[in-house]
Nucleic acid binder design. Sequence first.
DNA 1: ATATTTTTTTAGGTTAGCCTAAAATTTATA
DNA 2: TATAAATTTTAGGCTAACCTAAAAAAATAT
Lengths: 219, 219
Amino acid sequence: MISFTEENYLKIIYKLSAETENEISTNAVAELTQTKAASVTDMLRKLSEKQLVSYQKYQGVRLTKKGENLALQVIRKHRLWEVFLVNKLGFNWDEVHEIAEELEHINSDELVQRLDEFLGFPQCDPHGDPIPDSNGRMPELGYKNLSDIGENQTVIMMGVSQHSTNFLQYLAKIGLSLGVSINVIEVNDFDKSLTIKIGGNASSFISYEVAKSLLVKVF
Amino acid sequence: MISFTEENYLKIIYKLSAETENEISTNAVAELTQTKAASVTDMLRKLSEKQLVSYQKYQGVRLTKKGENLALQVIRKHRLWEVFLVNKLGFNWDEVHEIAEELEHINSDELVQRLDEFLGFPQCDPHGDPIPDSNGRMPELGYKNLSDIGENQTVIMMGVSQHSTNFLQYLAKIGLSLGVSINVIEVNDFDKSLTIKIGGNASSFISYEVAKSLLVKVF
DNA sequence: ATATTTTTTTAGGTTAGCCTAAAATTTATA
DNA sequence: TATAAATTTTAGGCTAACCTAAAAAAATAT
């Protein structure tokens, strides 16, 4: 049996692994779990004994196939519940993360299966993140980061790769939401900031930092 | 803050309190929590310090107003989730208890509020149990036990006061489900067993034990 | 290459929630 | 009403998941 806490560690290691090829450091995990490095070391030893991660002391950690599958199932549940909260209960996309953090640990394959069906087998969550299937396969959505789009191209906003309430509220303020079209007018040479037109309105200015966190579909 | 485990204790003490005017014994709690009496004693002391129960050692326990309110909110969540599982996800009424035991501990007033609305403000769960409102008030449904119905009366089955899978499957086998009409043909004098007609079909025989667990509406 | 800084681990401790065994109290029975 | 039986509590321990402080290893800088 795998505990609530262990599931969280796996999920966090999975997320960190998506950003690098290298082993994940103890400190990086500690930061996201909001614990101290010493606690992480304890847990890594335990997860290693359960064959959910491969870990040699001082050498960082990575998920085993088994650990990755478990992490993907937790992510699947998290994202399905987010779809439920937004599409069925009418929550805003910046309000669902905390609740989904709790719901993702409910244990019932039958429940997940039926929830998926009830929601119409969604491919992605309200932030545009792909939802893994019951075998842990991620759908290939082919989205790009807005920061990789050249001048004069027009794209559709499909998601975000950062979920802080702050960030989502900033997007709302400048008029960015899922489905709007974004026209890249100018890419600034030295800091990669962008001048864009949102849904045909007056042009806006966004930083490279923000552009990196926006997922868009190109035609 | 109140923990998962504390919530379970409160819920169990609430249920036991519904069956008696007296203080609840340590052993009774231990049986339902599936723990040992010594563990219950520990927890009762803790709940008492938090003013959720009134407890004097060797004298049993009862909920304070504060403890009762918390218990009612947990029960509210449990029953709302059961409605969701049956009405929206298509589960059978004998499959939902375990899952609702987990869901009932999800913490978000906003979620409960929206779920209630999404379900159409149901008055009772799939077993016919009343759902307390957000102030902890139980709707008065006025159901009676089938064991209190006299000969020649016809009633409608509205619920059960026992939720074991065994029992629910027995009911399914003899053709008893919510909404069917029950005609009491004969009440046996010495063991109070009943001969009944279910939905106008051939007559069936049920024990007093079973009749006590069936909730019915009289016209 | 050595010294310094940073990262990670170990050692030992805490709390929540459980346990067993023994002691205290209450209840039932002779 | 005294004794036996049942219930409940106390005492002392365990495990999971955390902590701090100190030690060990790795990375960085001189």
